[in-house]
Design a protein around this nucleic acid. Sequence first.
RNA 1: GGGCCUAUAGCUCAGUUGGUUAGAGCGUCCGGCUGAUAACCGGGAGGUCAUCCGUUCGAAUCGGAUUAGGCCCA
Length: 926
Amino acid sequence: MNYKDTINLPSTPFPMKGNLPVRELEIQSFWEEIDVYEKCLNQPSPKGDFILHDGPPYSNEEIHLGQAMNKILKDIICKYRKLQGYRVPFVPGWDNHGLPIEREIIQQFQKRKEKPTKVKIRESCRKFAHNFVDVQKQQFKRLGVIADWKNSYLTMSKEYEAKILEIFLEFVKKGYIYRGLRPIHWCTTCETALALAEIEYKDKKSYSLWMKFPLRKDSKGVFQNLNKERCFALVWTTTPWTIPANLALTFHPAFDYVIVEVDQDYYILAKELLKTTLSELQIENYRVIKELKGKDTDGLVFKHPIFDRDSIAILGRFVTLELGTGVVHTAPGHGRDDFEIGIKYNLPILSPVDEKGIFTKESLQFSGLNLKDGDKAVIEALKKAKTLLKEDRITHSYPHCWRCKNPVVFRTTVQWFMKIDHDRHRERALKAIENTKWFPSESINRIKSFVESRPDWCLSRQKTWGVGIPAFYCKNCSEPVLDPHLIEKVIEILKNEGSDAWYTKDVSEFLPDDFKCPKCRSKDFEKEKDILDVWFDSGSSHLAVLKPNEIPCDVYIEGSDQHRGWFNTSLMVGIGATGKPPYKSVITHGFTLDEKGYAMHKSAGNAIPPQKIVDKYGADILRLWVASSNYFVDVNCSDEILHRIKDAYRKIRNTFRFLLGNLFDFDRKKDFVPYKERTEIDRWIMHKFTLCMKETEDAYEKYEFYKVYHSVYNFCVITLSSFYLDVSKDRLYTYGAKSKKRRSAQSSMYEILKNLAIILSPILSHTSEEVWKLLSQQEESVLFATFPKVNEANLDYGLAERWERLLNVRDGVLVALEKKRNEGLIGNSLGARVSLFAEGEDLKTLLNTYKDELPSIFIVSQVALLEDNSSLSADVYKHNDELFIDVQKAKGGKCERCWIYSETVGKNTQHPTLCEKCCKVVCKKG
RNA sequence: GGGCCUAUAGCUCAGUUGGUUAGAGCGUCCGGCUGAUAACCGGGAGGUCAUCCGUUCGAAUCGGAUUAGGCCCA
C-alpha cells in the first residue's frame, strides 16, 4: 500500500512564483471590469467620509520614483480607510500650466525656426500637457492605485481655470490685491522677464572698477578729526551701468573695517580685504588709522561718485569678504539684496532702465544710452569726477538668458501682489497651522517659520502658459483696472470657452460698451499680458476639486519641499478666499535617494524609473518597498534593497501559499472549530496573531506603514513559518483529514490567512486579491472587506507566558540537536530522542504538563523527562543554567507514513511499517 | 551662508523616562531535509551606535562642535 496517498499534503493553485508583471495586469483588468472604485464608494460607510486630497503632479514627463512613492502612499491610506468603513472618494489631479512645459514648447518652435503667437504656444502647451496626463495616468494605474481616474482634475480644464479666477476675484473683492515693485531678472534682448529656471550661468567678461565715494556727513565722528575733504569709502563693482542707480553703501554689521591713510587720503574698507585691495590698486605705502565694526558706520553719508546726491551707509548681512572691499555699492532697483535692503531702509527704488535696456530720464545725463554705451559713459563720468581709482576687466560667472544666451540684468518692475498681512491673514494662517496635525510633528517648524516671515505673494508672471490675469490698462494713461464686475464678465466667458478666450478675443468683448478709464475717461484699453503664478493654480485645488463640506479635508500628503510649495499656497488661498484651512492633517514624505544616500536625479544617472521596477518585479514589489521604508525621512532605493524586498515578498507569498495549500479541504461553514475548542497551540497562535493585528492597526493609524510591514513580516517568518507551521505539519499531514485536531489547526490558519490578506491589501493589493479569490469569500474583492477587529477574547496571556517558556526550551533543544547533527549522530530531527533534566521545579512542572506535546514542539520522535541527572551523557548540552539536554538516536523503527520513530512500528500485522497512531488513522479511513 | 531634518550590523528596522554583554528579520557562511521543493528548517559569524568633546558613578539615549547627506532659502 502506498501510504503517501493517505496523508493530507497541501494543494493549491496559488503558484509559488508570483509572475507579477503578468498576473497583476489580470487583477487590474478584473478591478476595471467590476469598477472597483465606484463599488467601493457605494458600500456601506459607517464611519462617514474620509478625504485625501491629491496634490497634482506636473504633467511634463514620465513619473519618477518619488511620484510613484507618493501615489502609492496615498493609495495605501485610502485603501486602509476604506477597509475601516469610511467612504473614500479619491480624485487624482494634474498641474498643467507653467514654465517647464512652456519652455519645452518654445524650444520646439525655435528648432523649427518658427515664431508662434501666444495662442499657438498655448495650444501646443495644452496638447503637450494632455499627452503626459495620459502617460502618467497609465503609469499610476499600473501601480495598482485605485482612484477616480475617469473624473480626475486638470488645472487647465475650463472649470478649473474659471474657479481660479473666481478665487482671484474673491481676493480682489476683499482687498488683498495690489500693485507693487519687484526686482526680477530681465533679458533686454528678448524684452522679457526671466524666471530662475530660465537663467543659465556662464562666464562673462565684465568691467572691474574701484571707486571712491567722498564723505559728506559723519555725525558720530567715525573719521574722527580727519580732514573730511579727504575721507572716502572704497567701493568695487562689475556693473558700471548700475552706478546711476546707486543710493547707498552697505556694510556688514559684524565685520571689522579699517580706515587707512594713503597719500593723506583716508579710505574705509573691510579689514580682511585691505591687503588684496591695496595690492590691486598698487598702493604700497599706507597706514591703518583706526579699526571699527561695520555696525559703527551707521550714520555715515557719502556722496554719489558722479551725481550731487547722497549715498548713505546702511547695514546688511549679505555683504561677503570674497571679492571687493566689503563696502557694497547698493542700487535698490538692480538687485535682489539691494531691493530688500532698500525697502528696509526706505530708499527709493530707482530703476532707470527700460525694457529694451535703454537708460530713462531718471538716469539724468545718461538718458537714451543703451547699457553698453552707458557702461562707457559712466566710466568717463567717474574719471571726470576723479572718483575712479582703477579700471580693469574680470571674467566671472554671470546669469544669461536661456533663449538668446545674452547676459541678463536686474530691473525693478511693477507686479500684482497678494498682501499677506491684509485682514490678519498671516495671523489666521498661523493659527490654522497650529490647529493642523503634522506628520512627522517636526514638520510644523518648516511651514510655520516660512509663513511667519514670508513676503507678500507676487502673483503675476510674464509668461504665456497659464491663466491670464483679468486686468485692463488704459492705453491713454496706463491706469491699471482691476474691477470685480469686469472680472465677473471675464469668468463668464472663460467658463464656456476656457482661458484661451482671454488671448483670442478682442479686449472690447470683455468690456461694457460705455466703459471709460476711471482716471482719464479714455475708452481705449488693452488686456493684461501677465498670467497668474501657477502656484495660485495648485493652491486653489481644494476649492476647485472638493465639495464645500469636504473642506478642510482629512489629509494632504506630499514631499517635504511642499511646505513652501503646495501646503503653503493652499493655505494662503484657503484662508484668503474662505477663511478655512484646506486640511486637518498634513503628512510629509522624504525624497528618494540612491544606495549611497545621494538624491536621485535624471541628470546624475542614478534615478531608478518606477516603470522599470514594475516591469521587472511587479507593482506589489514597489509597493512593498514603499511600505517597508520610513518615509518620514528620505528613503533609499537600490538594486540591493529591491532584492531584499523581493526576498521578503517571496517569503510572504510562500506563507500564503502554504496556508492556502493546507486549507484545500477546509470548508469554513462545516469544519470550523470555535476558538475555545481548539488545541492550545492553535489558541496560542491566535494570541500571537491578535497582537500582530493590534500592532498593525496602531501603525496604520499613525501612517507608519514600515511598522505594519515589519510586524506582518516578522509574524510570517518567526512565528508562523519557523515555528507554528513547521510544528503543525505532522498534524496537518498525518492526522485524520477530518479529525478535530487537524480542523482546529485549519481553523486558526484560515482566520490568520483571511485577515492577513485584508491587513496587507492596502500594500500588497494584487497579491491579497489573488489570495482572496482562492478563499472564496462573500465579497468579490478584498477591497470590499472589513478591517479585522481585534478580538480581545483571543488573547490569553497566561497561555502565552507558558508557551514563551516552552519556546525558550525549544531554542536550547535546537542547539543541542544541531551539535549532534554536526557530529553525524542525526540528520533529520525526527531521528532524535531528547532527554531533558530540569533543575528548577517550575521548569520541571512546566515540562511535565506539556509532556505529550514536547515531541511535536521540538519535531523529534521522543522526549524523555529525567528525574535525576545520573544517566546524562558526558557532553550533555546545558541551556540557561537550568536545563540539561541530551540527544540520542530515536528508539524503534521509522514509521513509513509519518516518519516518526516509534517502538510501536511493526506491532500491527496489517500495517507492519506503521506506528500505532498511523495505523489508527489508516484503518479508520480504510 | 541661513532654516528644518537625517546618521544604530551589507539591507530594512527595534532600542521605553540615560542603567549589565546594543536586538530582530533578511542577506552572507556552514549544515539538515527532500511531504511548502527555483521551497522549508537549524546553527555560526557580522556593530568603536558617523566623528570628536562634554555632563554623569554610568551615554546609542542628554548638551556642544565637526563630518556626510537631504529639502527649502540666500
